[in-house]
Every structure is written in structure tokens, then in C-alpha cells.
Design a protein around this nucleic acid. Sequence first.
DNA 1: TAAATAGTGTCTATTAGACAGTATCGT
DNA 2: ACGATACTGTCTAATAGACACTATTTA
Lengths: 240, 240
Amino acid sequence: MIEFPPESRPKLIACNVPDMVPTVPVSVDLVVLTVRSQALCALVWRRDHPPYTGCWALSGGFIKLDEDLPAAAERVLAERAGLPGAPVHLEQLQTYGYPDRDPRERVVSVAYLGLAPDLPASTEAHMSWRAVAELTEMAFDHRRIMLDGIERARAKLEYTSLGAAFCPPEFTVADLRRVYEIVWGRPLDPRNFHRKVTKAEGFLLPTSHTTTRDGGRPAKLYRRGPAELLHPPMLRSLKE
Amino acid sequence: MIEFPPESRPKLIACNVPDMVPTVPVSVDLVVLTVRSQALCALVWRRDHPPYTGCWALSGGFIKLDEDLPAAAERVLAERAGLPGAPVHLEQLQTYGYPDRDPRERVVSVAYLGLAPDLPASTEAHMSWRAVAELTEMAFDHRRIMLDGIERARAKLEYTSLGAAFCPPEFTVADLRRVYEIVWGRPLDPRNFHRKVTKAEGFLLPTSHTTTRDGGRPAKLYRRGPAELLHPPMLRSLKE
DNA sequence: TAAATAGTGTCTATTAGACAGTATCGT
DNA sequence: ACGATACTGTCTAATAGACACTATTTA
């Protein structure tokens, strides 16, 4: 790639539109999901100014002039979502650019999906975890973005090891199963689930620790393994 | 959604950056793939002006002020890629926003993936189909974008019926199998493939037509069925 | 002891992969 | 007839789903 110092860059001349290349603000919006209190939750804040005053909104922010998109997402996660340095898996979700999605001015928004363990929401950043089932009235097209993020998360649990991103650093097979059950919204057979995830190469790394429990046999604790893709995948069957 | 006529829209005031919201040109770039001459090919043109003079490039264009992203992709497909009205499956791929990806000025590019049957490339638009294996030197980050598109296409053949998007309206099971073989780059057993796709509910709609051939039994012709997702998916095994 | 949770083994129906064999065309 | 391609059936190994059973803790 040829390098230009920023101030000396020649201005862009598009082939068929040499004079008029419209520019728009580009924002990054974050769908941060977690599993807590037996529900799939999203990290949101309540808007206190127009438009959409009182509605729940995703955390977001505008990209800076020389900032990469992943860097912008990390910055929004730290500064706006109030989760600096948290172990959140971030990946680009989709870009939303319908002209009237922000009534004030056209904004193109690159949405990122974040999968997080059950972290405390930052009161300083005025964020809170809300069950996604109750987030029916949201600002802008944030409900659509959130639903797209949830569907991506559901699909990714099938063929990747990302379910562990919802868990703390050390977790039990039952913890992981509850993540799958809540994200997919259906019960899974504990014994078959156990067999599957422990036999999937690179999914779980055993540790020497166990849990202490109110009753019942202590469970082995595992860490996330190196595998990103699962072969074969954990398919949601069609039944039910 | 509250409606404002465009001219009366209040300007955007971001929470923490009330004065300075940088704006950037947003483009749409198209990775249009097809299968022809036993190879996976991409629709590209050879740049005749700087930067990257002489390099192959994807077709692209800037979004207009009040144009939706899918509409921009359709317009670029028609006007720049030279495929107006063609039966091309278009879906958003990913957004690329690294600040120096265009050496002239920062451009955020929303890439779309297009899957097309074997159509003639428009000479008027100076486009041509090139085998992706030979597209090693491309302009900007277009090679990375193309590779991301190819990987998306490979994955989508597993769990959707999109392989048929590479075929003409009526096609044989062998046609479809050759698509899979070329996109995945590995031979498939014709008999097992036949069994799988004909038994997958909603994948193929039988017609009353058959092919005429140079030799060999004529094959039944099928049309794309209504199913979008395949249950169970056609998994690429790990072998080989 | 009972209750609760963790983990293992076993059976069966389904499926993937391999491949023999049949069907129907052109020459 | 023969080669070529389309299609069907069959065997086997692997897997998913169902579920009986054992293991280890707290109360």
C-alpha cells in the first residue's frame, strides 16, 4: 500500500462523479449480549434527549478521522459501553445505511456484535443489562440491529466455540450448556451435551479445579480451548 | 419512524462531540462470483488510471445522498458491473474502513457479495471474468475483500441452497455438483451428492424437461426450490 | 439416609461415505 | 455392441437422540 501523510493526500476523484462525492457520518453501534439471570440480555442505555427520548438504545459513537473500524468498536466498548478492557468478543455484524434511520441526518452505522460474560453494567456510563425479550421499544433501528445480532449469536454457537465467550474464564460444562439453552431458547440433554463438548477437539481445556456446590457432585472446571470452529457443528435440530 | 423532509432535518448533535463529527465518503464494492470454464471467477476490471494503474479491481461506486445501501449495490451492479437486471444474488458481505485503504482519501467501503450464473461480461463496462486463483495483484484491499467473499460463498454452500444461484434457471444435479466441486475445490461423489440434494426438502423443484447430451443418459432438469436453509447442512468433511 | 448435580455407558434410528449395479442416451 | 453419463440400491462406520446408571457432594 502506498503511504501518504494525511495532510498531503490527493483528494479523491471518482470516475463518474468528479465533483460531487457525498460524505456521511459513520458510527459504530454495539450489540453486546450476555447471559444472566436465566435470560439473554443486551447492554443498553435509556435515552434522555431527543430523538427517541426514553427509549432504550445500543451504545454507539462516531468514528474518528483516522480510526480503524475495529479500533472504534473497542473505543465505544470502553468509553460508551463502560467496559474498558473487559474480555468481550467483538466481531463486525452488519452495516445499516437506510437514509432515514436517524431522523436528524443520514448516518451509516457499522454494527458490531459483542459476546460477554456476566459483567456488572457500568452505572457511570448509565448502561444496564436488559432481557432482550423485553426490549421491544428501542431507538432508531436498534431493535432490528439487536435481533440481527441475536440471530448471528445463535448461528455461531452451532459451528464455533463462541459459547464460551459468555462464560467466565473458568466454567463448567453445565454453565456452558445453560448458555446454549438460553441463547437457543430450548432445553438440551445434559448427558449428550456433555459428551459432545468434551469430545470436540480443542473446545474445552481441562483444569485441575472443581466447583463447590450446595449439593451435588462438584463439577470440573474448564477453560476455553484453542479451537474456533467446531467439527462437526452442534446443530440445533428442527424438532420442537 | 419520524419523518423529516430532507431539507428540514436538524443537524446531528453527537453527545460527546457536539462540534466535530467527521464525515467520510462511503462506497459499495461488489465481489461478483461465478463458475465458468471449470473455475471460480470474479468480475473485475483493469484500472487505467492511478492509483493502482493496471491492477484488477472490483466494481464499485459511491453511495448517493439519499440512497439505501442495497439500492446502491443494485445500481453498481447495473451501471458499473454491467449486469442490469441480471439474476444475481446480492448480500452484504462486510465493511472495510481502514483509514489508508484508499491512498487518496479515507473511504469506508461496504462490500457486497454477488453470486451469478455464467453470464457474458459486459465489454461496454470493461468488465471481465477472471479465475480467482489468478487474481493475485489487485487494487486497494480488493484481494482481501474478494477472499472474504469467497470464504463466505464456500460457507454458504454448506447450509443454504445458494449453490443454485451459480446455475442457470434450469439445471441438472450434475451442474449443481460441479458448482460445489469448483467452489470447494474438491471432488464429490456424484451418487451421494445426488441422493443428498434430491432428498433435501425444498432445494430442487423437478421440471418435466431433460437435457440432450453428446452421450450418456439425459439428465432431469430442476429449478431452484423455495428452501433457503438446508437441514441438515451439506458439510464439507475435514478429510483431505 | 435422601436430594441434587456430575458424569459414563448403551441402545437405536439416522446419516455420510464408499461403491456395485442398473438405466438410457449417442455412435 | 460400447462408451458415457444419469440414477438407484446396499453396505458400513459414525453420529445424534434417548435414557439407564454410577459418582460425589450437601443437608
